[in-house]
């Protein structure tokens, strides 16, 4: 804060010409980059699905991806162990032992694509193709009974999937929960 203001003041003093025009000079050392050049890093997908890539897949195709690349850590049916359980748990959130999974807890379907694409499989993240990512996402959604095994997930259909627990989430910010 104050250091910043001081720095700004020094710059102002040193560049009287700029100051006269009313603009504060800042270092401006960042280099401009085009959207195409930063695209390989622009991974995140929000709930509106904007930015989802081309490609598609259904649970039928996703089953094999899951067996090959996910089941070792999440169980053949997504039942978990050693890593997170991905399937089931519906109806347990008010019990003493809530089971939070993609099916019972997650509020948005886009989160599944976003997370699997950026971080899974744990041992070799960012190696799945877009088709594989759609297909394995479809497999997890279908295993939870949220879509049908034949339903095709793509940039249009995925964001429209209604997650059963979404209505139970509320946003605290800008307030606080005490």
């Amino acid at each position: 804060m104050s250091t910043l203001k001081l720095a700004a003041a020094l710059i102002l003093a040193a560049t009287a010409a700029t100051a006269a025009s009313g603009a504060v000079e800042t270092p401006m050392l960042g280099k401009p980059i085009s959207l195409a050049d930063l695209a390989p890093w622009d991974l995140s997908i929000g709930p509106d699905g904007v930015g989802l890539p081309a490609g598609k897949g259904s649970a039928r195709e996703g089953k094999q991806v899951f067996i090959d690349k996910c089941a070792a850590c999440h169980g053949l049916e997504g039942q978990g162990q050693p890593a997170d359980r991905l399937v089931g748990g519906q109806g347990t959130l008010t019990s003493d032992a809530p089971v939070k999974t993609v099916g019972s807890y997650w509020p948005y379907p886009t989160t599944l694509f976003d997370f699997v694409r950026r971080a899974m499989p744990l041992n070799e993240p960012q190696t799945l193709t877009s088709d594989e990512t759609y297909a394995v996402s479809a497999f997890i959604l279908a295993a939870n009974g949220i879509i049908k095994p034949g339903d095709v997930m793509n940039a249009k259909t995925l964001p429209k999937v209604k997650m059963p627990n979404q209505g139970n989430f509320f946003i605290v910010y800008p307030g606080n929960l005490k």
């Binding site: 622009d42 995140s44 997908i45 929000g46 709930p47 959130l93 008010t94 809530p98 939070k100 993609v102 807890y105 997650w106 509020p107 948005y108 886009t110 989160t111 976003d114 997370f115 971080a119 627990n165 139970n168 989430f169 509320f170 946003i171 605290v172 910010y173 606080n176 929960l177």
Partner: peptide, 30 residues
Amino acid sequence: KLTAGPTMTKDETSKYSLLLNEGKSAQFKF
């Protein structure tokens, strides 16, 4: 990345949200 709303990443939905009474979940308690 500047956005018009939260991205709803795994670590602000599945994790780091608070499961409260009656199945309600508090998100973005920072």
